[in-house]
Each structure stands twice: as structure tokens, then as C-alpha cells.
Design a binder for these strands. Structure first.
Length: 270
DNA sequence: CTAAGGACCTGTCGGC
DNA sequence: TGCCGACAGGTCCTTA
């Protein structure tokens, strides 16, 4: 479900509610997530002050006085700000009880999400190999062109590879390739530098625009306040099979590339 | 090394 | 109406 803009939406929603507060307790109801939650984790973080809320790719970093909690929302996860007393519902796997009477509640039907603790989160094995942030200065045309050189993988798979760039998932990979006018199946190594520049600009612009609209809600994404995102109405190609291209009118097509549904305009994208 | 496919889970939707 | 397969916003791990 959540890609970078959705995780950033959650981060921005929670930040003012938790930073500076004390983490009273961590209540784990279902430890069987993508990786089992370490049972020793609760004792380790309880009583610590929450210093900041950061994001790296699709990971949320809850930085504490010492170390940090690392949360990933997987495909179906959400973090909601709720009253501490409220009864947990199905798939509410853990609560972070915050000073006062509030809690941050993690819900995840598919359990592809995860919760870790690390003294230095950026050195954690899951984060240490991540590529640059797509909205950061290190992600530019020189970089992307260099890492695409000689590669035969589809450009869409390449930009969805978190070791290449962190946080671009299926929706925004599709959406960025459209304004860049690049066919999603084109071999990464067979794209000119000029067009790679367009792609870098498109990735940035699509992500920023999605963040401004609170992310994309297709079915069930909600921010920390329970509200959906509104970027769906801005989608140019994703989930628009058969509908007219917004640029030329040609019906949008879908095909599977790298196991993922890929939407594109066969006339505009080469 | 690269690339492709399977695996992990539950919920929902479309077709028969 | 009911059942069954296909598919869903992620990504690690194994295999070739």
C-alpha cells in the first residue's frame, strides 16, 4: 500500500503528536509480522523520550533518547493516532502508548509490515543498503544514468529497486514514467542521459505532488488521522486501463513487467 | 555478478 | 447467491 508519499504523509501527521513526548509503553499483541517482533524490544524502549520522527525510503524512524524504532508498513499497514483506552480491532498488532492518553496504533491485515529497534537505525541491515532518497540532492541524472549503464532490466523495475533509489513503488514508478515519456519495459541501459534527466525530474515532481495531496488512496490507505489521500484523482496512468491518455487520448494499456502491473500510454511512451 | 521467480499474508473483486 | 481464482500499494531470499 504505502509508498514514499504515503509514509511521508503518516510521518507529518504523527510528528506534532509524538515528538517531545515520552513513550510510556509498547504493547505487542501480534508479533508475527514480516519479521517476528523481538520480545525484548518493549523493555528496551519504554520510558524513553521521542526525539524526532524521520523517514528513510518507506521506513519510518522513531528516534528515541537512545536508538530508534524502525517501522515499515508493508502493503497494508497503517499507523493511527487513537485514544489509549480504545479497544483494539482485528489486525491491530501493536500500540505505542504516548504520554497523556494517546496511542499510535499499528494495523496491518497482511502482516508484511515490520517493527525493529536499532541503536543506529541507518546501519540496520534493512536500511544500510538503500539507495539515495529520491527527493534528496544525491539523486540526480548523473547518478541514475551511471547506475543504469549496461543494465538490461526494465527501467520501471530499476527505479523500483530500493538499492537504486529508496521509496519509489509501483504507483509512482508508473506515474513518473508517463511525463518522462519512457516506456516502462525499456532496458535501463538504453535510455539517453537527456531522457534520464527528464525521468529524475518526473520522479521528484510526482512524489512531491503526491505528498502535497496526502498520498494515494486506492482502497484502504489512511493517514494518521484516518483520512484518505487525494492523489488518486491526479493519476495519469495507474489503474486507468482502457481509459484515454490525458495527453493524446489513446487508451492506456497494462502489462506485467517484473511481476507488477504496469500502465502506460503506447503512443506517448517509448 | 545479473535477472527472474517464489515466498510471505489477508481481503476483495470479478467471473462463472 | 456462492465459490474460486486472480490480484493488491513491498521486498527479501533462492535459484538459474
Amino acid at each position: 500500500m504505502p509508498e514514499l508519499p504515503e509514509v511521508e504523509t503518516v510521518r507529518r501527521g504523527l510528528e506534532p503528536l509524538v515528538v517531545g513526548k515520552r513513550l510510556k509503553s509498547l504493547e505487542i499483541r501480534e508479533p508475527r509480522l514480516r519479521w517476528p517482533i523481538d520480545p525484548a524490544l518493549a523493555a528496551r524502549v519504554e520510558g524513553q523520550r521521542i526525539e524526532s520522527l524521520d523517514r528513510r525510503g518507506k521506513y519510518l524512524l522513531i528516534r528515541l533518547s537512545a536508538g530508534a524504532l524502525i517501522v515499515h508498513l508493508g502493503m497494508s499497514g497503517s499507523l493511527r493516532h487513537v485514544a489509549a483506552r480504545s479497544a483494539p480491532a482485528l489486525h491491530d498488532h501493536f500500540d505505542l502508548l504516548i504520554d497523556g492518553s494517546a496511542a499510535i496504533r499499528f494495523n496491518d491485515p497482511r502482516r508484511f509490515g515490520s517493527l525493529h529497534y536499532a541503536d543506529e537505525p541507518l546501519r540496520h541491515p534493512l536500511l544500510s543498503g538503500l539507495g539515495p532518497e529520491p527527493l534528496g540532492a544525491a539523486f540526480d541524472a548523473d547518478y541514475l544514468h551511471a547506475v543504469c549503464r549496461g543494465r538490461k532490466v526494465a527501467i520501471k523495475s530499476q527505479i523500483m529497486n530500493s538499492r537504486i533509489v529508496a521509496g519509489v513503488g509501483n504507483i509512482y514508478a508508473n506515474e513518473a514514467l508517463f511525463p518522462a515519456r519512457i516506456h516502462p519495459a525499456r532496458a535501463a541501459g538504453r535510455i539517453s542521459k537527456r531522457r534520464i534527466e527528464d525521468l529524475v525530474a518526473a520522479i521528484r515532481s510526482v512524489l512531491e505532488s503526491a505528498i502535497r495531496q496526502g498520498g494515494t488512496t486506492l482502497r484502504d490507505f489512511v493517514g494518521s488521522d484516518g483520512r484518505p489521500g487525494y492523489f488518486k484523482q491526479s493519476l495519469a496512468v495507474y489503474d486507468r486501463e482502457g481509459e484515454p491518455c490525458r495527453r493524446c487520448g489513446e487508451p492506456i494499456r497494462v502489462r506485467v513487467i517484473g511481476q507488477r502491473a504496469s500502465y502506460y500510454c503506447p503512443r506517448c511512451q517509448r
